[in-house]
C-alpha cells in the first residue's frame, strides 16, 4: 500500500507539479510574454496569449518527415531526452518556497550539467539529420557551448561562495536572511543573464539557427511533432533557468510559501524573462568568432572578478 502511495505521489511530482504540466503551461506563457515584450519594443501589438499553445497543438497534429539519410532512432529519441533532462533539473530548484523537492549538497553543479544536456542533444540532432545546414548548425552549437558555459558556471558559483554552501536551497535561504548581500552579486547576475542568452540561443547569440544564413540551423530537418517537442524543450529550459537565477541570485521566495511565494516566483522569473527580451530586442546577431571573443575576453574575466569580490565579502562577513 505504502509503495503504491509513494509511486502515485512521485508520478504526480513528475507529471503535474513541478514537472511536465507546470513547465509546459508556464513555459508557454513565458514564451508569450517574451514575444509580447519583444513586439512592444518594436512598436507593434504582438501575438495573443494563446499563441504558443496554438503553435504547439498545430505542430503536434502535423505530418512527421524523417529524411532518408538521417539516423532514424536518434532523430526520434533526442527531443525526449532533452525534455527529460530539463524535467529532472526542476526537482532540485526551489520554486514556491525556499525548499526544493530533492535538494542535496552540490545540486547546483548537477543542475548546471543537466541543463547542458539539451545543448548536447541540439548538437546530436543536427549531426544525426546529416543535412549540411543542420551540420553547420551543430558545429556552431558546440563552439558556442564552450564560450558561454564557463562564464555561466563561474557566475553561479559566486553566490555559492558567499553563502558557503553548494546547495541551491542554502543559497536561497542565505539571501533571504541577508537581502542586502544580493547587491554584491550584481556583476555575476549580469554576466549570467548574458550567458543565458547564449544558452537559450536567443538573439545576440542565436548563431546556431541563424535563419538568414543556415535556414533553420540544427532544426532544419525537423518537422511536425518532433519539432514541437523541441520547441517545448526550449520553452521549458527558459523557465528552469529563470527559476535557477531566481533562487541563486534573487533570494528565492524570501521565506514565503503558498500564494505569496507563487506571486514572488512569477514576478521574479518574469523579470528575468523581461531582461532576456530587452537584450534580444536591443541587439543584432553577432558572428561566431565575435561571440567567442566576447565571452572569453569580457564575460569570463568579469565572472572571475565577481568570485574575487565574493571571497573578500565572505572574509568580511566572517570578521
Amino acid at each position: 500500500m505504502e509503495i503504491i502511495k509513494e509511486l502515485i505521489i512521485g508520478l504526480f511530482y513528475i507529471i503535474v507539479f513541478p514537472g511536465l504540466l507546470f513547465l509546459v503551461i508556464y513555459g508557454g506563457l513565458s514564451e508569450w510574454l517574451d514575444r509580447k515584450f519583444y513586439a512592444q519594443m518594436q512598436n507593434r501589438q504582438g501575438p495573443p496569449w494563446y499563441q504558443p499553445f496554438a503553435d504547439i497543438i498545430k505542430l503536434m497534429s502535423k505530418q512527421v518527415i524523417i529524411p532518408k539519410a538521417a539516423d532514424k532512432k536518434m532523430f526520434k529519441i533526442l527531443p525526449f531526452i532533452a525534455i527529460a533532462a530539463i524535467n529532472t533539473s526542476i526537482f532540485m530548484i526551489p520554486i514556491f518556497s525556499n525548499s526544493a523537492l530533492y535538494g542535496f549538497r552540490g545540486d547546483i553543479i548537477a543542475v548546471i550539467y543537466l541543463l547542458s544536456i539539451p545543448t548536447a542533444t541540439l548538437f546530436l540532432i543536427g549531426w544525426s539529420s546529416t543535412s549540411p545546414y543542420a551540420t553547420i548548425g551543430s558545429m556552431r552549437v558546440l563552439t558556442q557551448l564552450f564560450a558561454y558555459e564557463v562564464p555561466l558556471l563561474i557566475a553561479v558559483l559566486g553566490p555559492c561562495i558567499l553563502a558557503g554552501s553548494w546547495s541551491i536551497e542554502d543559497v536561497a535561504v542565505f539571501f533571504t536572511n541577508n537581502p542586502w548581500l544580493m547587491l554584491v552579486n550584481i556583476i555575476g547576475f549580469l554576466v549570467a543573464i548574458v550567458a543565458l542568452q547564449g544558452k537559450l540561443e536567443r538573439v545576440p547569440f542565436d548563431i546556431p539557427h541563424a535563419e538568414t544564413e543556415i535556414v533553420g540551423g540544427v532544426f532544419t530537418e525537423y518537422s511536425g511533432r518532433l519539432y514541437g517537442f523541441m520547441r517545448l524543450a526550449l520553452d521549458m529550459e527558459m523557465v528552469v533557468v529563470a527559476a535557477l537565477i531566481n533562487a541563486v541570485f534573487l533570494g528565492g521566495s524570501f521565506g514565503y510559501s503558498g500564494w505569496i511565494g507563487l506571486l514572488l516566483f512569477v514576478i521574479k522569473t518574469e523579470f528575468v524573462v523581461f531582461l532576456l527580451s530587452v537584450l534580444k530586442a536591443a541587439m543584432a546577431r553577432v558572428k561566431i568568432n565575435q561571440m567567442v571573443d566576447f565571452c572569453w575576453k569580457w564575460l569570463a574575466p568579469f565572472a572571475i572578478l565577481q568570485i574575487l569580490i565574493c571571497i573578500v565579502a565572505r572574509f568580511m562577513i566572517n570578521g
Partner: peptide, 21 residues
Amino acid sequence: TPRFDIERFGVLLKGSPRHAD
C-alpha cells in the same frame, strides 16, 4: 515588417520548408 505586424495573427516567417504550413 513591424508596420503590418502579422504576428498578431500568429504568422511567422520560417526558413525551412519542413516547418512551414
